[in-house]
Amino acid sequence: MGSLDLEVTVYSRHSSNYHSYKGNIGTVNDNILNQKFNAKEPYTVIHTDIAQVKLSNGQWGYVSAVIDEANQEIIGTVVSS
Rank of each mutant, 00 (worst) to 15 (best):
K36Q: 14
D49Q: 05
M1D: 00
V78D: 00
I67R: 11
I75A: 07
P42N: 02
S16F: 11
V79W: 01
T44R: 09
I50A: 09
D5F: 10
I74C: 14
L4H: 07
D5K: 12
S20C: 11
T44D: 01
K54M: 15
M1I: 09
P42Q: 01
E7L: 09
H47R: 04
K40C: 02
D30F: 07
Y18P: 00
F37R: 10
Q72A: 11
H47I: 00
S3N: 08
I75S: 06
S80N: 03
H47Y: 03
Q72P: 00
Y11F: 10
S56I: 09
A39N: 01
E41N: 02
T9K: 14
K22T: 07
Y43N: 13
E73N: 10
V79K: 12
V79L: 14
H14V: 06
N34Q: 14
G2H: 11
N31A: 06
H47P: 00
L33W: 13
G61E: 00
N71E: 08
H14D: 12
T77V: 11
H14P: 11
G26F: 02
E7Y: 13
E7V: 14
K54I: 15
V53C: 14
G76M: 08
T9Q: 12
S56Y: 10
K40M: 03
N38R: 10
N17M: 10
Y21P: 02
G2V: 11
